[in-house]
């Protein structure tokens, strides 16, 4: 930011910051970083469930932004454009690590887990009995493939057609895997609640 602008206490609008960042203005780029860092970092953290990786990926996503902001034509919202780019950075990272982006079929439908879902078992509902921290941990405990689908749909709000395009699967597969991810998450939350209840 220029001294004059600082002295007035003004802040760059996102549109101004985008245009100035296109010209290589470092201060404008910093503005964009502060506007979008939380969502990008949260996305990276949920997708990887690893703080260090999330920070690295956040850095990589914003470096991609620095390199490619000149190609942003305003055909979509800047946040949409940036977050789609961030998702691609994370998915690329997962593929490089050899982790499944698309959930493997029947990952948790083992006999042991099926027994837990025995109809008629009395279990209080999750609502009101688990906190956000438990949810975060449960999401982190999801298998990578399920976690990706779940985070993209239920956390980030992408539609199944968008997810199918990003991860390279069918829309039906995305829906199916999301449901399984939710079921898995429910089990994990119940386990977490049970562990918490047993602790003194």
């Amino acid at each position: 930011m220029t001294d004059a602008r600082k002295s007035r206490g003004d802040k760059l609008s996102e549109a101004e910051a985008i245009e100035r960042a296109k010209q290589g203005d470092a201060e404008a780029f910093e503005t964009l970083y502060h506007l979008h860092k939380r969502r990008v970092y949260s996305l990276c953290l949920r997708m990887t469930a690893n703080t260090a990786e999330a920070e690295d990926l956040t850095q990589e996503a914003f470096l991609q932004l620095f390199r490619k902001v000149g190609t942003f034509r305003g055909e979509s919202a800047f946040s949409t454009w940036l977050h789609r780019m961030s998702v691609n950075v994370v998915l690329m990272h997962l593929r490089k690590k050899g982790l499944p982006v698309v959930p493997l079929e029947d990952t948790f439908d083992t006999e042991e887990e099926s027994a837990k879902k025995e109809p008629g078992a009395e279990d209080p509902r999750l609502a009101g009995s688990v906190d956000r921290l438990q949810l975060e941990r449960a999401i982190g405990a999801l298998p990578p493939g399920y976690r990706s689908i779940f985070v993209l749909h239920d956390v980030e709000g992408y539609e199944h057609n968008e997810i199918a395009e990003m991860v390279g699967c069918s829309i039906g597969n995305s829906k199916s895997q999301l449901h399984k991810a939710r079921l898995k998450l429910r089990d994990l939350l119940k386990m977490s609640r049970a562990e918490k209840a047993t602790k003194p």
Partner: peptide, 30 residues
């Protein structure tokens, strides 16, 4: 109960969006 739990998970999941703050080191590294 199943539907209720799943709805709860969906509702809570949405609150996780943009919930985390990266450390200052991220910007320094950038």
């Amino acid at each position: 109960d199943l539907v209720s739990d799943l709805d709860f998970i969906v509702r809570e999941a949405r609150t996780l969006q943009a919930s985390e703050e990266p450390s200052p080191q991220v910007w320094q590294s950038i």
